[in-house]
Design a binder for these strands. Sequence first.
DNA 1: TTGTAAGCGTTATCAC
DNA 2: GTGATAACGCTTACAA
Lengths: 321, 321
Amino acid sequence: MVSIKDIAKHLGVSISTVSYALNGNPKVTEETRGKILAAAKEMNYVPNAAARTLKKRETRIIGAFLTTFEGAFYGQLLQGMKEEMNKRGYDLVICSGTQSHRMLSEGMLDGAIILDNEFKDEELLQHAARNHKVVVLDRQLSHPNIVQVLLDNKAGATFATEYLIRKGHKKLYAVTGPEGSFDSAQRLAAVRQTVERNAPLRYAEIPGNFDKASGEAAAKRIIDEYDGPAGVFCLNDEMAIGVYHALKDTPYRIGEHLHVVGFDHIDITDYVQPRLATVDYSERRWGAVAAEQLIKLIAGQGAEHERIYVSLIEGESVQQA
Amino acid sequence: MVSIKDIAKHLGVSISTVSYALNGNPKVTEETRGKILAAAKEMNYVPNAAARTLKKRETRIIGAFLTTFEGAFYGQLLQGMKEEMNKRGYDLVICSGTQSHRMLSEGMLDGAIILDNEFKDEELLQHAARNHKVVVLDRQLSHPNIVQVLLDNKAGATFATEYLIRKGHKKLYAVTGPEGSFDSAQRLAAVRQTVERNAPLRYAEIPGNFDKASGEAAAKRIIDEYDGPAGVFCLNDEMAIGVYHALKDTPYRIGEHLHVVGFDHIDITDYVQPRLATVDYSERRWGAVAAEQLIKLIAGQGAEHERIYVSLIEGESVQQA
DNA sequence: TTGTAAGCGTTATCAC
DNA sequence: GTGATAACGCTTACAA
């Protein structure tokens, strides 16, 4: 590998001159800079990130941590992050799994955006305590080096539940997310509150997992105990799609027997028949805001907790009771 | 930041002893190792990746390069890669955009998997020439440091086209991918060959872009010139979904006026009505094989070009003509 | 304007 | 079995 030392030797200048020239330091004359740049190109010089990082203690790389790469969910979010980071001279890499946590602790990343509830609070706090910067998208965590950018789950779940009630439904189900999910917990709390406010209503919760399979399972249970039309709020769209799937080979129909609302407005919701009512928000914006706040945090400019607003999209999956 | 030097000082041993202990070198006695490990934990020591990389010239991180994070496509593929890499002690990060190419050239990555046709052949060859290892999923490239793991596009496209023909369709459309796409080019070539073999047929190509919008546009054009049922092979599923969307508010029906086949078997194909016929393959396997070959390449064990086999999934989107 | 040199945190080679 | 010490490639005072 050719290093600045090689260039220096080749040109008979010192390595610091080469370094200055390469970094655009105005101390070096246009002439020498030109020569050095030409030699660098000619010799196929590429800087060594490890050496630079060791010295400067920054990589200009941000990591986004996801629980898994699977699922139709994250595209726009990541794209929003990436564009925002690139604009500001940072690169984004996407990581998943416990193994990858070392990249954070070992200093390969200038900051992290967390959307992975398997990442332990404690680990994040410890990381923050080492003066590293973190944005969390999936929990509340109080530390000067941590900023939250959270969905307005409460508003979304309230909209969805009120929508079912407004349409005259007196029997409601909520299909929940997995145990540790912050989003699920927040949404569920809002559902309960709304249900109480509109008492009396029949209301039951079915534990789900945010995946299609658990949506199907929930649908089966609902059918089993069917005694008239019911409103079903799946706390995310994937599970709602599971409900559609489960009903396919039964006499039960969405928008007639089961009135379904989802959450997330994933692509497929616009394509299923009948169209799924869901809670919408801009994934892209979510990502962009998270990126923006993280960079502010890194730059030492006061970053602030942010909330991403949501809205209800009505659909034919819910009809008047 | 606490370094091995600090630990050494704290314990009154030399830094080399600390390094040996931390790296499990059997030279150091159990006793000293124990002390050192305890001190390291207590002092909150974390190794510095930059320093290690500078010295060892390896990161044990692999990068997968994508054109974009958007689209419902890559989840299983990446998951397959990740699991395979983790098994072998490597980490995977996902990168996108030209900016991120520096991570490759600057040595932050031990290898790369490329699925991004905006990545120039020339750049990859140059990288390979520097003795870096690359697996390409989206092109053919001949170099000892480059291995191809490609979909069997030819088989898939042939299956799809023959399926339409077998169902009695005499008027066929192919909706293509973007200009530079290797997959699109290969699929299209197979379609043409199959069409020729089954002459005479009416056959037209509509340029697409592998996204929904271009599928919708294609559908509009097909409707405009409609003069009887037609078979439409969309060279990927996303465009096929676009066709579904475009027909929604028209009198034309999938499986009646337009008989549609896609490619990729993305999740949504199982959920749309009528179910979309498509070409299936194991994304997960594709990722796993790519990872496996890359690691072989890095280890200097003869890696080989691989082909990922595909199969046709029939669907109600195609009916007898 | 350019050169010298220290140092970033490791690993690894060599003595002891 | 342990300890000095020289690298790895770069940035950046400071000296010339």
